[in-house]
Design a protein around this nucleic acid. Structure first.
Lengths: 368, 368
DNA sequence: ATGAAAGCGCTAACAT
DNA sequence: ATGTTAGCGCTTTCAT
């Protein structure tokens, strides 16, 4: 539990030349560098045309159609021969564009293997964004409270578009994004930005379905296991859970996964008669297996489990864990697609999209 | 198994205005945008000083020390009042710097939850790089063969430094990095760049230790399970394995994890008398558990297992899987630190660093 | 069908 | 102690 990792996208760039040992190169240093890069001008000179022409050719710009075939050929050859590659920074400055798409992940201690779905989200984004020539930038949001962060991201223009992954509910500063002209999309909706585009799951439905499944199979004491209700997704699962319970006239049993004594809480809950655990926070599942064993209870004979998300470990637990399979990669893809469409001005405006999830039966949910 | 994901860093930016539906903003479009950004010049005008002065103040530049306190104060206020944030592209162009650190991951189908350690590597890098004001850029290398990729990355200057994670051995084009002046470091050494900086594990030692452990416990038929020897790390583990075997006068048993029939191969190997499996490719471990069960063999009584890396699932398998714990996060951190040092010119030149790993006893390795 | 030239916003060498 | 100015390399309008 180290201090907050500063925000990088739009990092407030007060480089302190005194304390910051790591200086960037200064212009003078470039003299030390090897050969200098080939520029547009070089190509222009080489092929006997103007920089403008080279630019048109290089970019396949529509205006380039007016150029003679011969000129185009000449330029193409020169580009190849001189191995010319434009410097992004210069294009960016000239166009007011960055060519970057950012993903902002909420601050949590550190990226860990406990969140493998993040890889799928990233994979989805990169897969969409790369073919369009965009770079992918990943940033971890600083601990909330720094109300300036989003403004910073928006205004330092380091990205053409931003994907906000599952922002924390208590972070109100996210509202400030509305005032900016940064294109963004939520991966996981956010109540503070009700108008904003998002892609998400119907987590209420998920919580409801899970609970209903237990109820259908005869369970009446069903626990909701979570790590925090500080995220919209967990909160919604909770609402779905509540809804199903209320319809069946059952009482809730809320179990918060804290740093310690969680196992004890599970054991105690079991001793109070809980027979079913809905793991809104799927990662906690193995702990419930352990606790059940500790209580001398068998899964699924005595205790049933259902996780809100699949885990790599799920098929290998004994018994294998039933769960919902969530479309993480597709969430990333959809977010990216919509964002790009929005950036290009071809978007249909706000998009609010819910993706499907699937139930995977594996044997941890029994009839009672 | 989709086609290659194009390289993004240094993506060959031939935007085809005809086919590419997703255009970037053109300058003209900016008129449509909301308010225009506050520039250095605005701040300068507002506070009645020159742009140069503002720049010095904003950047805490040493030369700024010569400025009067009053001026500094004035400028600081103006910056705050106008909510000024510099545009990165302009700084980049002016300094020849990008403020980005890239991570290049070898092409594999898609980022998946099967590679959770990547998150730790990324976490390590971001943790080091962010506090220094650098952005983190992630890119997946295109399918090898495109000999131009690295040149492209190097010359399009989208990053100040690049971390190459575990490049494929058959990718010879990586050599071309030598010719460029891009700062880079290998996360996992590479025989094609013997002079280059790297951080890595001693994978030969790992393979040797694993094998020796089996031998010490009385095993004589020990299998080496891998998914590919196309990566330096696996190759080295294999070498360590071979070395230990040879010293003990034992014969090798190589099992390649293919798409199918792997389970059968394991079963068959067991039937041929194999009692120990070293999983150079740790992710395959659960499959061996299954195969053992299929053969009616018990772990660890009949068959012992040792994985080269820890898995989230490892503690929850029955019996829990013994393995080595690898310092993924620290690999990322060290790579990033060395890279930054190199960029700032304060590096000690080439760094070739091996990090420690640890053995985690869990119960899947028995005496025979 | 092509070129000239004016920026984009910032930095840093050079003046004063 | 502060200002002037010349770029950085590219895009794009406008002229020819």
């Amino acid at each position: 539990m180290v201090g907050a990792i500063p925000l990088t996208l739009g990092y407030d760039p007060v480089l302190d030349y005194n304390t910051n040992k790591l200086k960037r190169f200064n212009r003078g240093d470039e003299v030390l560098m090897a050969k200098k890069r080939t520029t547009l001008a070089d190509v222009a000179k080489f092929s006997g045309v103007s920089p403008a022409t080279v630019s048109l050719v290089y970019n396949n710009h529509p205006l380039g159609k007016r150029l003679s075939d011969e000129t185009v050929k000449k330029v193409r050859e020169a580009i190849a021969k001189l191995d010319y590659r434009p410097q992004q920074a210069a294009r960016n400055l000239a166009t007011g564009t960055t060519g970057n798409i950012g993903l902002l992940i909420p601050f949590s201690d550190e990226l860990s293997r406990e969140e493998p779905w993040l890889l799928e989200v990233m994979g989805g984004i990169i897969g969409v964004v790369s073919p369009h020539g965009y770079n992918f930038m990943l940033s971890i949001s600083a601990d909330s409270g720094s109300h300036v962060s989003y403004q910073n991201i928006a205004q330092s223009s380091q990205v053409d578009g931003l994907i906000l992954y599952s922002p924390e509910l208590r972070d109100l500063s996210i509202k400030s994004l509305e005032g900016t002209n940064l294109k963004f999309i939520l991966c996981g909706k956010n109540p503070h930005l009700p108008q904003a585009s998002f892609v998400d799951l119907d987590n209420v439905a998920l919580g409801y379905e899970a609970t209903a499944k237990f109820i259908t199979r005869g369970h009446s004491k069903i626990a909701f296991v979570h790590a925090s209700l500080e995220y919209q997704s967990y909160l919604e699962r909770y609402r779905g859970y509540r809804k199903a319970l209320e319809e069946a006239g059952l009482r809730e049993e809320l179990l918060l996964l804290g740093k310690n004594a969680f196992s004890e809480a599970i054991v105690e809950s079991i001793s109070r008669g809980t027979t079913a655990f809905f793991l809104a926070h799927a990662a906690a599942s193995p702990l419930v297996y352990e606790a059940a064993k500790k209580s001398g209870k068998k899964i699924p004979e005595d205790v049933s489990l259902l996780a809100a998300d699949d885990l790599p470990v799920a098929p290998f637990l004994t018994p294998p864990l039933s769960c919902f399979r969530l479309p993480h990669r597709m969430l990333g893809e959809c977010a990216a697609k919509n964002l790009l469409a929005n950036i290009s001005g071809e978007g249909q405006g706000e998009i609010q999209q819910l993706l499907d999830f699937a139930y995977v039966e594996r044997g941890s949910v029994a009839k009672t």
